[in-house]
Amino acid sequence: MTDNATKAASDERGAQAPQVVESKHEGHSWTGEAPLFIYAVWYLAFLYIPVLFLPLFSFNDSIYVAFPLKGFTLQWYADMLENPALLQALENSVKVGAAVAIASTFLGIFAAKAMTRYRLPGKGPLTSFIMLPLVVPGIILGIALLVISNTVGVDLSLYTIALAHTLVAVPFAMLVLMSRLEGFDKSLEEASLDLGESAFQTFLRVTLPLAWPGILASVLLTFTISFDEFILAFFLAGNEVTLPIYIWSQLRFPNRLPMVLSLGACILVASFFIVTFSEVMRRRGVGTQSGSAI
């Protein structure tokens, strides 16, 4: 693992050699490119390698997670597919995630449009207020929502989980969509209004088509947030559980560990691809659009 990292480091250093020279001209030599670059590669290894042990051991033919590796097996993945409780939890998670993605993106579009297109008094405090769920510890939000459901008399179910997830997903949706709306020229919308389109038609025919990469990114990100969220779901789940809660409940049984590993590996791979795709959509979209929309 470390060999790969250092090998990659030396490869890339070779490729970046001209920049090292360039930076020396600027007087960067005391922290030249190379040491920082090696550090960056190590840092990425620190970020990624711990998580990669889950997929690695999910193919290992032993119920113990330990070296040396015993042999290759797909047994744990097969077990997974034959487990009705797991499949039910997966279905629940997808349902909740889809509802959260749609609801939070809708709210995010409205909020982002208000924030970027109108002169609002108190915009700063309002933005901080909407961002608050990102900072309040999850456990506090979880028990606060548990307490209120109990007081109001709402039974815990997938709906309570979805509501809680919407609360934490809205700030992300708004951030993603705000950067997207700021990325294209406001005068396009004004032109449409001046040419006689109604506000709604303008939104439908100008704003939405220009904002759709942001909307897609927001839908995917908020889905992933909900799909992977554990703390709020833990407090707000009724009889029906989502996938992270199912995993938590299985951690008590050592003999279920390999199956948890294979499930974890699947979730990690799925999240990784969804999120990478949405990040590419979001960031690249903003860059090119702001240049070409003029």
Binding site: L47, V51, L54, P244, W248, I267, F272, V275, E279, R283
Partner: peptide
């Protein structure tokens, strides 16, 4: 930037669980 951000979006529970395994 994407390389840095992506792990952050993946399951918190699984990232913590990975350390238990390690």
């Amino acid at each position: 930037l994407i390389l840095i951000t992506v792990p952050f979006w993946t399951s918190y529970l699984l990232r913590v669980f990975a350390w238990k395994v390690i």
